[in-house]
Design a protein around this nucleic acid. Structure first.
Lengths: 227, 227
DNA sequence: TGTACATCAGTGAACGCGCGTTCACTGATGTAC
DNA sequence: TGTACATCAGTGAACGCGCGTTCACTGATGTAC
């Protein structure tokens, strides 16, 4: 499908329209929210009749699933390339929390660039929706990137906490990653702190409070890396 | 309205039906999400015709607003009573982070008891919805409770961070609360860390990971209080 | 290069559905004398 | 205590709407000989 090299003109055309549909879908999600996404409305916006979209997506659910998949993929790609860039200048890595700082700002930039894309993934779930397996696979790739970066941090700070002991025995989610419990702990803290600031910021809960969320974000991160 | 003492039978009946409508509304939100809330569906579930509900709520928006108001009020009440109980045994306060620990567990208990109620307030916002002033007033009461508790914490841990300096000049959101910047900082961290763990937990992002979110919650809190 | 055929994008009509909301009404409940 | 009237909860019909989705179709594009 993505093999545009051997694609026939018709296949290329199909791929283009599919992409165009998704663009309009994102646009609509941005203004009305994900749960109100409507195929008919997208079609109208594209100057087509409603049923025409069924040439490209079997139904509404398939479109939403692809949007979610794209969002996860985009985030994973962003983090991967950030991690690779950080690896090149390895000297600075220790000072930057093993690349965690870079990843954090990559996530934040990615989320602010298109808030609805972040919220579609990490926001309030659509009741009854269950993501297919290939999507959960991408989300665990993201977890692995996090664990890699967390592993490069010089020394753990509060070893032997109750959570550390617990994680030593409950680490299935880390797959076969060799990270010690303190690193697992740090990766989880990293995730929840970033999400804590970011999701409240994107939901507008800091609006009108008058302080700069970027500094709170940085402070939460700093505290994680240099206690 | 809430003055049941001088209320006529008719007024009491009205209040009861209004409450019953809200109960069914919450029930529906729990299964289909807030954005799909339908007056007709509620009426059917209550064995009434759709238009009957318009005797009790002018329209759909008024019902949703009241649900949000109730949720905020309930959270504020929970925190207030938790804070009062903590004040009685003031001796333990210092050891418990000035009551912040108690507040944190109160929030968590409140959220887990009815996840949709928490998510309605702090989850992905309904696009285009703007809360009336009396609701933002309740949310700032909650902030004040937080600031009071954060003020009672023995000593600040990392004074003079960039965020602290920033907050010294951007503290309008704290009203006339006399808390120093380090306390403002701690209150914000408290809020975002609690929300970070809680919202990912409620959204089901820890499901299948195999560790106990309660321990991560506690660890994030501990790190805030004893660095 | 030209013709015959197959593929497939897109249309318009139609389906049944549930939504919010209005309106004129019935019938029960409460109030005033 | 009884009668006359006002209030008001709830009904059923109706409005216009947009939704997802199906179906039989037209017409353009690509393929095979």
């Amino acid at each position: 499908m993505a093999d545009t090299g051997t694609a026939t003109p018709r296949e290329r055309y199909r791929a283009q329209i599919r992409a165009e549909i998704k663009e309009h879908a994102w646009q609509q999600i941005a203004t009305t929210g994900a749960s109100a996404l409507s195929l008919n409305a997208i079609a109208k916006q594209m100057g087509m009749s409603g049923p025409a979209l069924y040439r490209y997506y079997a139904n509404r659910d398939e479109l939403i699933t692809e949007l979610i998949r794209d969002a996860y993929r985009s985030l994973a790609d962003t983090l991967r390339s950030t991690a690779e860039k950080a690896a090149e200048k390895a000297a600075e890595k220790a000072a930057e929390g093993g690349g965690l700082t870079g990843l954090a700002h990559a996530v934040r930039g990615w989320a602010l660039r298109d808030p609805q894309r972040y919220l579609l993934i990490y926001g309030t779930p659509v009741p009854g929706y269950h993501a297919p397996d290939d999507i959960t696979a991408i989300s665990s790739q993201i977890m692995t990137l996090l664990l890699d970066a967390a592993s490069a941090v010089p020394e753990p700070r509060n070893p032997g906490t109750p959570l550390d002991h617990h994680l030593a025995a409950h680490r299935d989610w880390a797959g076969d990653h060799p990270a010690p419990p303190a690193v697992l702990h740090r990766a989880l803290s990293f995730w929840t702190r970033i999400h804590g600031v970011l999701s409240l910021e994107l939901a507008g809960h800091f609006a009108g409070m008058g302080f700069d969320p970027a500094l709170l974000f940085a402070a939460e991160l700093d505290d994680l890396l240099s206690p």
